[in-house]
Amino acid sequence: MKILVAAKRVPDPNATIKVRPDGTGIVTDNLKFVVNPFCEIAIEEALRIKEKQGGAEVVLVSIGDKVAQEQLRTGLAMGADRAILVLAEGNVEPIAVARAIEKLVAQENPDLVLMGKQAIDDDSNVVGQMLAEMLGWGQGTFASEIKFAGDKGSAVVTREVDGGLEDVEVKLPAIITADLRLNEPRYASLPGIMKARKKELKEIPIADLGIDQGVQVKTHKISPPPARQAGKRVETVQQLVDLLHTEAKVI
């Protein structure tokens, strides 16, 4: 089985995000970047499938600046076999990301594409679904468990949905997007990091993929959210309940 895994470079989820005063984006000086946590989970899942089934190949793909090499190396150090970096400057819209990966799918012919359910920078939660439609494939989004049928012609995906857990059966090849409970990603080991240096990391300029990069969604400005002020400290439970009753009038 060949598995393509999408991995995005994003700011560390624990970092404090500040909006630039000119409204053009966020302050990136001294910001630490990591593999999008959901993509890390996708990579881990691909590695587990490979370990279980044997003979699988795990290929990483990222679309972004040259610096996204770092995140691909992290994935290679976790155990992925090789990586492809589609070089693009600046903001690449989700639709263009999906189109770029569509082209790579045509070149690589994977049996499965694993991705994160959401990139924690743009919080769009759309790329996997868009890609599935472009390819005419099935999708199992927000996955918390994946089970393959004996003949590997399909997979049953447990999905975290409103009100509970849903199981769907998807024919392979398919797109599966990872939710938080799918697994706990491993850390790269030191030997893993050494090995990763020698693994193939191919770069392709986005222009070479021949995709439509016309603007579909234009960003006019980025602003800070309305600030919320800290209120009062209360000393006792009784005081809290009284204030909620008489002042805030919510109970």
Binding site: I17, V19, I26, I222, S223, P225
Partner: peptide
Amino acid sequence: TMVRPTYAGNAMATISIET
């Protein structure tokens, strides 16, 4: 235009769909 939260609600993006 429309507004959507990004970066866990730490940056509000004002956008428009051009299609």
